[in-house]
């Protein structure tokens, strides 16, 4: 199976709910080491492989066998792109919390929470839809496409 094999779309939805909970805990507690762990997780999924996402393994081991089989599949590229968008937000958040710029940390974490929550509750991936807009203002994407 290739690293970019399409996935059961319910896995990423479950994963987005877990991310939503983690980001909510970070906002409540200001525990920036947890946010740092989430940042590393986003980076691994975005830049290495979605298979490194532990929530994906939990989904396949615990939830998928209890659900009706689905032939629906989602491409890996948008999912990895979304993880990259999450990575940027949480990285800024960690830098904010860790350097004492707490307001920056809170705002960036809230931004990541909006994205994760919209993904979990509505199945919306704003970063994916707005790729053209993001690219227009950030030339780095032109050279940074996961293959």
């Amino acid at each position: 199976m290739s690293l970019n094999a399409p996935v059961d779309p319910r896995g990423p939805r479950f994963s987005a709910w877990m991310t939503t909970v983690i980001l909510a805990v970070v906002l409540l507690t200001g525990w920036w080491r947890l946010l740092a762990a989430q940042t590393v997780l986003f980076a691994m999924c975005a830049f290495i492989s979605l298979k490194l996402n532990p929530w994906g393994h939990v989904y396949r081991a615990v939830l998928q066998p209890r659900l009706k089989p689905s032939s629906e599949r989602e491409e890996a590229a948008p999912l990895r792109f979304a993880q990259g968008v999450g990575f940027v937000f949480t990285l800024v958040g960690v830098i904010g919390y860790a350097t004492g710029l707490t307001t920056l940390g809170v705002v960036a974490t809230a931004g990541a929470l909006v994205a994760a929550f919209l993904n979990a509750a509505f199945g919306l991936c704003l970063g994916c839809e707005m790729y053209l807009l993001l690219r227009r203002h950030t030339p780095v994407f032109a050279h940074d496409r996961p293959q």
Partner: peptide
Amino acid sequence: TGLLVLVGTLVLAVPLG
């Protein structure tokens, strides 16, 4: 503050969705 931001974020995100 964290609680207020959390509630505020979710209150805005639902209509946005």
